[in-house]
Design a protein around this nucleic acid. Structure first.
Lengths: 137, 137
DNA sequence: GGTAACCCCAGGGGAAAACCGGTATTAGCC
DNA sequence: GGCTAATACCGGTTTTCCCCTGGGGTTACC
């Protein structure tokens, strides 16, 4: 499937915020080894999509806009898919293309649609506990 | 999800061949509005992957290498995915990314893995009959 | 009022995708 | 046997998209 790095950064940022409860872009960037300027852009999209809430000024930062159990991963991925998704390219879109893409899309949606942020956190923590290695999340 | 244009061209070419039984790259390109040179390259990959058989010389062209019921769409898509898939980029690949990608990949495979070319053709013909509009396939 | 954060806008660089040209090779047909 | 229509192969070019950066504006804590 191959996610874009933007999607990966966004997911990691979300997990970080979920884990800490509250964090500034600067801290997230350092801790997750993400270019801070780029991260701001990404978090901006997450904010406009309604996943996090930003707070300005000193001691500012981000927190989740809703509990992790209500944040659907596929929604996050879609929000970070450089707009223009769902084929708004104005192309004629012939029948076969439409069929295949719809088929793939629907099934993917049905399959991954129920994966939520809290499940991701749970699995990640579980793995981390077992490996007992360096601190990742 | 958004397929690459290469994947779309390839699927359309396959459907065209399946529908006609036998066709030259030139004819397919004109009929499907695909850049002919690019199409040759794509069909070349489909041939090397064992989906079609090419015949040279005058009256040459392509035909399916096996019945449409045995051509799995996900195999076709994988064959047209510019190699290097399944993440052979050597990237460190953090935990969360791995979790999401594996999850998406597995579920997608399970969901689309059983979709075959004949089903696609059937759906396309059905739609075409209902719309009764311009000739596309 | 100073400063630490978020927030918006506008690009640049590089890599991959999409596309094209020339030539070799095969095979039908006169 | 030569002509010609097609596949097969190689390399190069253009275009598009993704990742990343910079400068400045805005809010709010102290």
């Amino acid at each position: 499937m191959r996610l874009t790095t933007k999607a990966r950064y966004g997911l990691r940022a979300l997990c970080h915020v979920a884990h800490r409860g509250y964090a500034s872009a600067q801290v997230i960037a350092e801790h997750q080894a993400i270019p801070s300027r780029y991260l701001e852009e990404i978090i901006g999209e997450l904010r406009r999509a309604g996943f996090v809430i930003g707070k300005r000024g000193p001691r500012g930062g981000y927190r989740l806009a809703k509990p992790p159990g209500e944040i659907v991963i596929s929604d996050v991925l879609r929000a970070l898919s450089t707009a223009a998704s769902t084929n708004s390219t104005g192309e004629p879109q012939d029948e076969i293309t439409a069929l295949v893409e719809r088929s793939v899309d629907d099934r993917l949606q049905a399959a991954v649609g129920n994966l939520k942020l809290d499940q991701l956190l749970g699995e990640a923590r579980e793995r981390h506990r077992r490996s007992a290695a360096n601190y990742v999340i």
